[in-house]
């Protein structure tokens, strides 16, 4: 550390046009924070709407082992999400979503390591960790695509349900779910699944695109030329936010 000590005041201060630097943060970083606050409101609205719908429906009151799919009560999520790729027919509650959670947390770690490397102007490590983060993002998206596909196609047996069709009650077997039919429970449950995980997945996808852009600019020496890797930090904030949202989705959609 002693080989490189900056004298106080030697670093050129980063000023905004008013001549000061509010909250000791650059303009871009502060605006990213405020954007993330607005995004927090959007995700909160979705999750709170989920809570409202859940509280206004009857809950399943029996034992978890006795749970069966029905549109008369809200489903127990651990019995809905129990499928894992290549292990067809085996009940593994929440295992796959656990793997997805781990992937996202790991990609958050590689992202913050890229930010740290950027502070040291260490281009090779920024490239390495950005690639790991991009890989984590794509893996998560792949997992989500599989989960959606499974959720939409449903179980082998389907669920026999009484539903209203063209104004009359009919009994029919429903396979999987879409925005109007749902074999796992009330249609609202499937709607919230598609909207909440879909909106989050869209954020992951945008994050991966931004990460690729950052990787490309780092690899072509753009940030070396600029003399600052702060863009890695700003996009890092966005990527961590996506991870943060998943922590809440995981608890309130899958666990509770």
């Amino acid at each position: 550390m002693a080989s490189h000590v900056t004298t106080p005041g030697a670093v050129e201060p980063k000023m905004w046009l008013g001549g000061i630097e509010p909250m000791k943060a650059s303009y871009g970083k502060l605006m990213m924070w405020f954007f993330l606050i607005s995004d927090t409101f959007t995700f909160s609205a979705l999750l709170v709407a989920y809570g409202t719908a859940r509280f206004s429906f009857p809950a399943f009151t029996g034992k978890h082992e006795d749970f069966t799919f029905s549109n008369m009560y809200w489903p127990v999520p651990e019995r809905v999400y129990e499928a894992v790729p290549f292990l067809h027919g085996i009940s593994l509650p929440l295992v796959f979503v656990g793997i997805m959670t781990f992937i996202l947390i790991a990609s958050s770690v590689t992202m913050v390591l890229a930010v740290e490397a950027g502070h040291r102007m260490d281009r090779a490590n920024v490239e390495k960790y950005m690639l790991w983060t991009i890989l984590g993002g794509f893996t998560f998206l792949g997992c989500q695509a599989w989960e959606w596909s499974h959720f939409i196609h449903g179980t082998d047996a389907g669920t026999v349900m009484k539903v209203i069709e063209n104004g009359t009650w009919v009994e029919k077997t429903i396979f999987g779910a879409n925005l109007t039919e749902n074999q796992y429970g009330p249609p609202a449950f499937a709607d919230f699944f598609f909207f909440i995980t879909g909106f989050h997945g869209t954020h992951v996808f945008s994050g991966v695109i931004l990460n690729i852009l950052i990787f490309f600019r780092a690899a072509t020496g753009f940030y070396d030329k600029r003399g600052s890797y702060e863009m890695v930090e700003k996009v890092g904030l966005y990527w961590h936010f996506v991870d943060l949202v998943w922590v809440f989705v995981f608890t309130f959609f899958y666990l509770v």
Partner: peptide, 24 residues
Amino acid sequence: SILVPVIFVAWLILALLLEGNAIF
């Protein structure tokens, strides 16, 4: 600046969970 706006979220949670319960 980041933490204070989250108070509005806390209020939204409380208000709408009570509302959901009232609907039930």
